[in-house]
């Protein structure tokens, strides 16, 4: 039995490629952000296809331009935005398992629809685990990721993957069509009211009735929306902790939706919040795309989120359709 050195050698990092997992826990009180994959739907399916446990790290490739070489055989899956990837020059499918041989070259093109693709590997990427029991890279905080400094992947980086026997390939699997999102469908975000919001009801109605566009200034901290500005009074609010999905209305009247890398506390008035399932879809939204809100009750939103978590976190994962 020879000890195999299993690494993906990065040849090109692309626009923004990051090692991400489910994000950190129990660190917000230290001023640290949460981080983690922006689209949990695509990430969770990638891991599920490969028989990985919930929470294994993936490479989140934004837009594309990523290139890497596998040192040893394994199995991978590409989910989320179709980055027009090629394996040794041959186009490969997304949302299904791909067999990798030693020396295989994976190269992505660029997303025509959606924004972020996920590269999962059998057993997960074994980069260092940092604060909050997470491997997630946080560029702004200079923490996490393959170098512990939050750096995006770049040429020369080597990412270890789990040691499985060559014979232990896993059977080919594919995500049923019903679970593959259509990134060209209208982007509609489920919104829950915060009953304690200081904002007048009329203002919230306008927020929900209006069409917004996703600003190109959006990033992993926040989605900024452009549109007819809302008339927001100044509220002398004391900053408080803010959760993912929080909608904030700054004095500019242009809504902000807080995402995984939000600052841990914030002080703008909040009409309510967007569901985490909607954030998964928003992660694939492209600048200029139209965004609309629709109301959902908290009970329904919680049920929806719980259904998602229990589907992917069941110990005995139901078999999925073999190709």
């Amino acid at each position: 039995m020879n000890s195999l050195h299993r690494v993906l050698e990065v040849l090109e990092g692309g626009m923004l490629s990051l090692v991400e997992d489910g994000g950190r826990q129990h660190v917000a009180h230290l001023g640290l952000t949460q981080g983690g994959v922006m689209d949990r739907h695509a990430w969770a399916w990638g891991n599920r296809l490969l028989g990985n446990h919930w929470g294994e790290a993936a490479i989140e490739i934004t837009i594309g331009g990523f290139k890497g070489c596998f040192s040893q055989a394994t199995q991978i899956a590409l989910t989320g935005a179709d980055l027009n990837a090629r394996l040794n020059g041959q186009p490969v499918a997304t949302w299904e398992t791909l067999t990798i041989k030693a020396g295989d070259l994976l190269e992505t093109g660029y997303a025509a629809q959606g924004l972020r693709g996920y590269l999962c590997v059998r057993g997960g990427w074994k980069t260092p685990v940092g604060l909050g029991n997470s491997r997630s890279a946080i560029v702004r905080e200079q923490l996490g990721g393959q170098d512990g400094l939050g750096s995006p992947l770049k040429a020369g980086d080597q990412l270890s993957y789990a040691c499985t026997r060559d014979t232990d390939q896993g059977r080919p699997c594919s995500v049923p069509a019903a679970f593959r999102p259509d990134y060209q469908a209208p982007l509609i975000l489920d919104f829950c009211d915060n009953p304690a919001s200081p904002l007048p009801e009329q203002l919230i109605e306008t927020l929900l009735a209006q069409r917004w566009t996703l600003s190109s200034r959006s990033n992993r901290m926040a989605a900024l929306l452009d549109g007819q500005p809302l008339q927001v009074e100044r509220y002398p609010l004391v900053s408080s902790g803010v959760a993912a999905g929080t909608v904030q209305l700054p004095p500019s009247g242009q809504p902000i939706i807080l995402l995984n890398e939000r600052q841990s506390i914030g002080g703008y008035p909040q009409p309510g919040f967007v569901t985490l399932r909607s954030l998964d879809r928003l992660a694939q939204g492209r600048p200029g795309e139209v965004i609309q809100f629709r109301r959902l009750s908290l009970a329904e939103a919680q049920q929806q989120e719980r259904a998602f978590l229990s589907f992917f976190q069941r110990q005995d994962q139901a078999p999925i359709r073999a190709i």
Binding site: G241, A299, L309, S310
Partner: peptide
């Protein structure tokens, strides 16, 4: 609890929906 964020006048609790609802 997944995260507790104390601030000036508030505590934000993020919780595991598999174990609790609001």
């Amino acid at each position: 609890l997944l995260n507790i964020t104390p601030a000036y006048t508030t505590l934000l609790l993020e919780y595991d929906l598999r174990l609790e609802d609001y």
